[in-house]
């Protein structure tokens, strides 16, 4: 390309000083970052062999630790139970290919709850002649998914109830629901987890309390419910008053109006926000490692602190980052598609 061609391209790319500065800065960063990263991840990297000597990435470390990243310390001969649970979860996702199922939040949640109940039974054992496995052995990606989907399945009905309570006439109900939602949303998740782990046993009548995993689940569900309530309330507020009036004019009572007229529309409008909250929850489950439950990130952190593999933190975090990115990015694409489908299907000016 000739010099004038380059100049013209540059003029078009950077028509003023601000974009020129941004463009230069970006090009500089790219030029600085890409070669070393490529050299580290691919060119200088070790891909096979029991040990690494190269100066690049050591992928055998990730390969050796992969079972722990996925299952924690779950006994190897029993991992088929987790695979079975995972398949059930995938089957639940596949249900969304059915057009009639897609927009119906209620049935979707009910099936998810059944899948999760099966998942807990399979993971914990002790029923159906399955050998029990302590929750302290659970870990890795399996715990990440179990925690986030549980929070989702619990928070949806809880969030709907809270949102309806905040819109209720009864001032006591309204006040209680508002106080709950606003106080949960006003404090960090870590504070809620500490509260669930440390305080919850104090308030329970039976001695010994409940296990750490269960307490963490309670904390996450409290947190998720408050945010879900806001998503549902937001959608409820956008519903035209005419819908409420029409339901009343048909002679429907509160329950039937909600079940037949209001909630189906509200939930459909809330779906994009519900999915965004799910992504947020999935990312936030990593915080459980601070209170001693080892999700995917927790297992990675344990692995990179292992003296046998010292100095391979980057590989571990890169792996965890790619897994989280793959899951969250996929879900956010789905969310965009759903948003477009809903906009087109309803033919409304959002």
């Amino acid at each position: 390309m000739s010099a004038t061609g380059v100049l013209r391209l540059w003029r078009r790319a950077a028509p003023d000083r601000i974009s020129a500065a941004v463009l230069l800065l970006g090009l500089l960063l790219l030029a600085l970052a890409i070669p070393p990263v490529m050299r580290w991840a691919l060119l200088d990297a070790d891909f096979a062999g029991p040990a690494c000597e190269g100066r690049g990435a050591c992928w055998p470390f990730v390969a050796e630790r992969l079972p722990q990243f996925l299952y924690g310390y779950y006994p190897a001969p029993l991992r088929w139970r987790l695979h079975l649970g995972g398949l059930a979860l995938l089957a639940w996702c596949a249900l969304f290919a059915i057009p009639g199922f897609r927009r119906r939040v209620g049935p979707a949640t009910a099936v998810l709850a059944a899948v999760l109940a099966l998942g807990y039974a399979l993971a914990a054992g002790g029923v159906l002649g399955l050998q029990p496995v302590e929750a302290s052995l659970w870990g890795g990606l399996f715990v990440t998914l179990l925690l986030s989907f549980t929070a989702m399945a619990v928070s949806l009905p809880a969030g709907i109830a809270l949102a309806l309570a905040r819109a209720a006439r009864n001032p006591v109900l309204r006040g209680l629901a508002s106080a709950f939602v606003e106080s949960i949303r006003g404090v960090p998740l870590l504070a809620i987890l500490f509260m669930a782990v440390v305080l919850l046993p104090l308030f329970l009548p039976w001695q010994g309390g409940i296990g750490l995993f269960a307490r963490v689940v309670v904390g996450l569900c409290l947190y998720a419910s408050a945010y879900m309530a806001e998503a549902v309330r937001g959608a409820l507020n956008t519903l035209p008053q005419g819908q409420f009036d029409a339901a009343a004019a048909l002679g429907l009572g509160y329950r039937r109006a909600m079940r037949l007229v209001i909630l189906p529309q509200v939930l459909r409008r809330a779906i994009p926000n519900i999915i965004n909250i799910f992504i947020q929850i999935l990312k936030d489950t990593t915080l459980v490692l601070i209170v001693g439950v080892y999700d995917l990130l927790g297992m990675v952190q344990l692995a990179v602190s292992d003296p046998k593999w010292l100095g391979h933190a980057s590989e571990g975090f890169a792996f965890a980052g790619l897994v989280f990115f793959a899951i969250c990015f996929t879900i956010s694409r789905v969310s965009l598609r759903v948003e477009r489908l809903l906009g087109a299907g309803e033919g409304r000016a959002a």
């Binding site: 790319a13 941004v22 463009l23 990312k283 990130l297 933190a313 980052g321 989280f324 990115f325 990015f329």
Partner: peptide
């Protein structure tokens, strides 16, 4: 107005938003 700059901005936003903050924090720390 330039696709390359838009793409760079979008890459940053997507990469950061789709991974947990705690992961970014721990990776940076190590």
């Amino acid at each position: 107005p330039i696709p390359a700059i838009r793409a760079a901005g979008r890459t940053y936003v997507e990469a950061v938003r789709n991974t947990p903050l705690l992961l970014q924090l721990l990776a940076l720390y190590f």
